[in-house]
């Protein structure tokens, strides 16, 4: 099992005291599985994704990635997990603006010690980025930037890919194209993919669909 989430809760402090966002979530994912996580705004989708990705810490409950309990990890161990086991594709792409497209794609693979120039070239070709490798992110379109972000994540060959609204900033045609390519590559690497989305069309492309409502999975 790639991911196991057991009875996870999370609250955020607000002006009116602590606001519970997740109220005991349980979820499992196997290798190669694709999962759509949907829900209304504020339902806790992104929070769950951040917790699974080791970007934030739970209030209670247990999250295991590849059998490792990440809720017991310190900041350094969670950083190591993010480098090697988990890949996150953000809605805002989060590319490094001062690095070229090629350097951005190779970046996480270099951090995890799994850099393979052949694979970077193959990913760039598969995502139609070859002509843009020497450009800087500001010089390419939003769709192309999202492709770079996907390539960066997959080049590190993580066991679990997390994508937060990966097509939220793209037009319909570009979104469909990017999604096709991401699914094909995930299938090829055998990673599990969790996609947070508002889009029914995106959700329909995943092998499993769970809905989060008021902090609980429906």
């Amino acid at each position: 099992m790639v991911l196991s989430v057991e009875n996870v809760t999370k609250s955020f402090a607000g002006a009116d005291g602590a606001t519970p966002v997740l109220r005991g979530v349980d979820l499992q994912m196997q290798a190669g599985e694709t999962l759509a996580l949907t829900g209304e705004s504020g339902s806790g989708k992104s929070t769950l994704l951040h917790l699974v990705g080791g970007l934030d810490v739970v209030d209670s409950g247990v999250i295991r990635v590849n059998g490792q309990d990440i809720t017991e990890m310190d900041d350094t161990a969670r950083a190591a997990l993010r480098r090697s086991e988990v890949g996150v594709v953000f809605q805002q792409f989060n590319l490094i603006p001062s690095l070229t497209v090629a350097a951005n794609i190779a970046f996480q693979a270099r951090l995890s010690g799994r850099h393979d120039p052949t694979q970077v070239a193959a990913l760039a070709k598969a995502l139609g980025l070859t002509p843009h490798l020497e450009k800087y992110p500001e010089a390419i379109s939003g769709g192309q930037q999202q492709r770079v972000a996907i390539a960066r994540t997959l080049a590190a060959r993580p066991r679990l890919v997390l994508a937060d609204e990966p097509t939220g900033n793209l037009d319909e045609a570009t979104a469909a194209e990017v999604l096709d390519q991401m699914l094909a590559l995930v299938t090829e690497t055998g990673a599990a993919l969790m996609v947070v989305t508002h889009s029914q069309a995106v959700a329909d492309r995943m092998s499993r669909h769970v809905h989060l409502s008021q902090g609980r999975l429906a």
């Binding site: 990705g53 900041d75 950083a79 190591a80 997990l81 996150v88 590319l95 603006p97 996480q108 951090l111």
Partner: peptide, 15 residues
């Protein structure tokens, strides 16, 4: 700021 966040999200330890 964005780069720092991205680096940390990609697994670079704060230290």
């Amino acid at each position: 700021r964005g780069m720092v966040r991205t680096l940390r999200a990609l697994g670079v330890p704060l230290r």
